[in-house]
Amino acid sequence: MTDILTLVFRTFSSQTGQKQDPSVGPPPPSLRCSTLVVGEHRLSRSVLLLAAVTAASELGIRVSFFAQTRIQSLPVCLQRCSATLNPEGLKKIAFSYPRTLEELLQQVASLHESPLPPSLIIVDRLDGFLQEPVAGSHAGFHSGEESGAAHLSALLCDTAAFLTEVLEQRGSSSAPCRVIASFLLNVDSGQESRDYSATDPILVVLDRYFQARCTLDQDRSYEAAAAAAQEVWRIYLSGTKSPEDCEDGPALAQEWKLFTFPDGLMEFKLV
């Protein structure tokens, strides 16, 4: 699924970036079909929305977008980009708002019944679905935390695998079906860069199922402060080796920078 995120980053890339690819177009479909976006909530939701709109408008594919809280508005950079904000494309996005993990599981499980299956399944804030308040104690992951995370991840991946076969059988150019989900870590805001996988048991489970990781990490360096941007984020695309990687080549590893400006604009730059 990194093909769609890469397309998003290219589409909204810096015009002054030296390494910008002038041919903004769909990269070849990736065999690595599931990506977990790990990072800060507000930003990860914007990245998911950019992915949904870009996939629907640029690639013309159907998108199922699941979130616990309603989408109130699109990111500013989408509102200002009339070429990308194609109304016909937006109609291809189906927003659903399941309240609980059980409702989300039911809605994802029934996607195979749809006569027009999606080619992209997006879930905003897996952690919100997996984390349920425990009466009489602090809110936290319930006792079946790992099993719930595994069930949801496995269902998403199995559904995408099935829908890929359906789309291929129909000769559809919108195959394969991809999955993108975001996960917000429960960490102290002041904590510096850390090894997420080593500290979060749920993330360890999610990593079993998602083939690629998109990590959003805030850049607090001097260079970032000097860039006149409100915030600068480092985006790491990483993944385990897949059949698309050449045998001796490296696994997926790509780094982008994201500049967010006070007026809400977002700009990506390949590092």
């Binding site: 059980e102 499980a109 029934s110 019944e113």
Partner: peptide, 11 residues
């Protein structure tokens, strides 16, 4: 199909 959906979702 509905039974399959219920099984997959664990409900």
């Amino acid at each position: 199909d509905q039974q399959m959906s219920a099984m997959l979702s664990g409900t």
